[in-house]
């Protein structure tokens, strides 16, 4: 049986998680339905993107928007996915440790035989469960819609893009969890993770097209998802390793930071 706090946390987050899942599924269905009118006459899309600056096209992955994979990339995996799954992950990450402290319920949790390390482990596990659920929703909806609207993208590539998206979102969630564990403040956790995510998104887009910034692309977490372009190139294990190791480092920061400080009154 799963540890009690993990089950309680998943139960507490289920409601918000469902709202995110419904919104995410709706947005994906909407975007992919829009492909239908363009499918057989893509000139409009080509003309539209040709008139935009290269940096904009690069930022939103619109370089080959007139193709099926390009459409999927520029809508679901460059916009809807990072935006919704990323924001949800940051939200749950900020709630993981800083949430109970803001609500003054942390004392009650820690008065049980639950160590601070176990507290973080169980909350982080709940984050993985909930964000993993959103990843699964993404995968299922895209995998069902793709053949229906004839995107011409294989299941392996959909899986690769979703795995990259999932690990990126987990990294952002862990960032919020760690910021919350170190400071005990949900607002700070949201601000730190939110601004790193926002800046990281813009940075990757700029660095992709501005030559001077090009060597610094690696600074953005999005480089390891959008930059790796898994939809066209398949899984990039190096990038996945960076996101995974980054998440584990953030988890370690959370454990050390939380263990050393006073719980806020």
């Amino acid at each position: 049986m799963l540890p009690s706090l993990l089950r309680k946390t998943v139960r507490d987050w289920r409601r918000a998680g469902t709202v995110w899942a419904v919104g995410l599924a709706g947005m994906i269905v909407m975007y992919l339905s829009f492909w239908i009118p363009y499918r057989d006459d893509a000139r409009f899309l080509q003309d539209a993107t040709a008139s935009l600056p290269e940096a904009v096209n690069s930022m939103f992955g619109m370089t080959d928007i007139a193709t099926g994979p390009g459409w999927l990339q520029s809508t679901v995996y460059s916009i809807a996915g990072p935006l919704l799954v990323g924001i949800a992950a940051i939200g749950f990450g900020a709630r993981a440790i800083a949430g109970p402290e803001d609500l003054h319920v942390m004392d009650l949790y820690l008065a049980n035989p639950i160590s601070r390390r176990s507290m973080i482990a169980q909350r982080a596990a709940a984050l993985v469960v909930v964000v993993g659920g959103l990843g699964l929703v993404t995968w299922v909806v895209v995998a069902t819609m793709a053949p229906a609207v004839r995107l011409g993208v294989g299941l392996d590539r959909i899986t690769a893009a979703t795995v990259h998206l999932l690990l990126l979102a987990l990294f952002l969630g862990m960032l919020a969890l760690a910021a919350g564990a170190v400071t005990g403040r949900r607002g700070v956790a949201l601000a730190v993770a939110g601004s790193i995510a926002g800046l990281g998104y813009v940075w990757r887009g700029l660095a992709d097209s501005v030559a001077v910034l090009h060597p610094w692309r690696w600074l953005s977490p999005f480089q390891y998802d959008l930059g790796a372009d898994p939809l066209h190139r398949g899984l990039d294990l190096g990038s996945l390793a960076v996101l995974l190791i980054g998440s584990l480092v953030l988890l370690a920061v959370a454990v050390v930071g939380f263990d050393r400080r006073d719980v806020r009154a």
Partner: peptide, 19 residues
């Protein structure tokens, strides 16, 4: 930490999380 099984604690600032 293990000892906390033997303790019953009522916080002064009592709150709960969730529904």
């Amino acid at each position: 930490v293990a000892c906390r099984r033997r303790i019953g604690y009522l916080p002064g600032d009592l709150a709960f999380e969730g529904r």
